[in-house]
Nucleic acid binder design. Structure first.
Lengths: 193, 193
DNA sequence: GTCTATACTTCGATAGAC
DNA sequence: GTCTATCGAAGTATAGAC
C-alpha cells in the first residue's frame, strides 16, 4: 500500500516556500489553481519538488490547512480575551482572508473525503473554543440565554460575515451596509463603543 | 479571434443530456469534477461532443448556471406569493441543493472571471426580487423598518441557511438546532404556525 | 538530504469524416 | 446537423541521479 518513496525534511526551506506559494494561490485563484506545476512556478521551483515534500496533493492541502488552523486557534483565543469580546470576534470574523480561506477549504472538502474529516474536526474545535468564552461573556452581560443561547450568536455572526465576504467577491453589495449596521447596533447594546 | 468551428443546435437532445449530466456532477462531486470527459461519461456520450455543443467549458458552466438561475427566479416568485412569505422564503432557502449549487458556483466564479460577472448579476436580480416582496410584507406586518430594514432580514436568512447547509456537509452540527429554533421563533412572531 | 529525468493519465480543444 | 480521430498542454506521481 504505502509507497516507499522518500520524503523531504519538514523544516526544509523549499517545503515552506511551496506551502507559502500554495497559500497565495488558493487565496487569489481558488483551490482548483493549486496544482503541482502552478505551486512550483509560484515558488520558483521545479514541479517535481512538490511531490518530494508531499506524497500527494491532498497531503499538501491538509498541511496547508493545519498550518492556518493552528494559527487561527491561537489568534482567536487572544481575540476572545479582549475587554470587548463580542466586538473583537465580529472584527475577527470579518477579515476577508480568513473567510476566503474557510470557503475554499469547504468547497475543496466537498469532493475530497480525506480532507473533509480534517476540516470538520478543526471547525468544531474552533467553535467550541468560541462557545466557551461566549457563554462566560453572556453570563457577564446577563443575556437571557434561554431565548438567546450563546451558540446562536456565534452561528449568526459567522454566517453573516461569511456571506458578506463571499458576495463582495462576486461584486455584490445589496443590503451589506444595512446588515453590518444592524450587527454593530446589536453589539453596541452590550459593548458601547 | 473567435473560432470558426461549428456548434450544435440548442434544442439537441445530446446537448440537454450533457447539461443534465453536468448538473448531477457539480452537485455530487463539486465543480472540479465537471470535466469534458466526465460529463460525457455521465451522459453516456463521447467526450468530443461536449466541445461540439459548447465552445469552451466556461460556456457550458454559464449555460448550466443560466438554466438553474431562470428556474430559481420563477420558483422564488411563486414562493414569495404564498400566504406566509417569511416562512416560505426560509424553507426555500433551506433546500440543500439550492445552497450547494450556489456555493459551487461562488467557488467557481472565484477563478473564472467570465463566469463571475454572470453570477453576480443574477444573484443581485434574485435579491432585488426578494426585496420588492419583503418590503411590502414588512409594511403589512408593521415592522419598524428604520431599525430593521427588510433587506437585512433577507441577508440574515440567506446567511444562516447557507452556512448551516455548508457546515452540515462537513459533518458539523454545533449550534445548528438552536439557531434554526431561534429563526423559527422569530418568524412565528409575524406568521404564527 | 535535495533535486531531476521521466512515465503515465487526463484535460481542453480542433479539424475533418459522416 | 451530428459525431470521431487526434493533438498538444497540463496534471499527478515515481524512480533514480547528485
Amino acid at each position: 500500500m504505502s509507497s516507499t518513496r522518500r520524503i523531504g525534511a519538514e523544516d526544509s526551506e523549499s517545503r515552506a516556500a511551496l506551502l507559502d506559494a500554495a497559500e497565495r494561490l488558493i487565496l487569489t485563484d481558488g483551490y482548483a489553481a493549486v496544482t503541482s506545476r502552478k505551486v512550483a512556478a509560484e515558488a520558483g521551483l521545479k514541479p517535481q519538488l512538490v511531490h518530494y515534500y508531499f506524497r500527494t496533493m491532498d497531503e499538501l492541502f491538509v498541511e496547508l490547512f493545519r498550518r492556518r488552523a493552528e494559527d487561527g486557534l491561537v489568534r482567536q483565543a487572544q481575540v476572545l480575551e479582549s475587554p470587548r469580546p463580542l466586538r473583537a470576534l465580529w472584527e475577527f470574523s470579518n477579515q476577508p482572508t480568513g473567510s476566503a480561506f474557510a470557503m475554499e477549504f469547504a468547497a475543496l472538502a466537498n469532493h475530497r473525503k480525506d480532507i473533509r474529516a480534517e476540516i470538520g474536526r478543526f471547525a468544531e474545535a474552533l467553535r467550541a473554543q468560541q462557545l466557551e468564552i461566549m457563554t462566560e461573556v453572556f453570563e457577564r452581560y446577563a443575556v437571557d440565554v434561554t431565548s438567546y443561547p450563546a451558540v446562536t450568536l456565534l452561528v449568526l455572526m459567522t454566517s453573516v460575515s461569511r456571506l458578506l465576504v463571499m458576495e463582495e467577491r462576486l461584486g455584490m453589495s445589496t443590503g451589506h451596509a444595512e446588515t453590518r449596521a444592524l450587527v454593530e447596533r446589536l453589539i453596541d447594546q452590550f459593548e458601547p463603543s
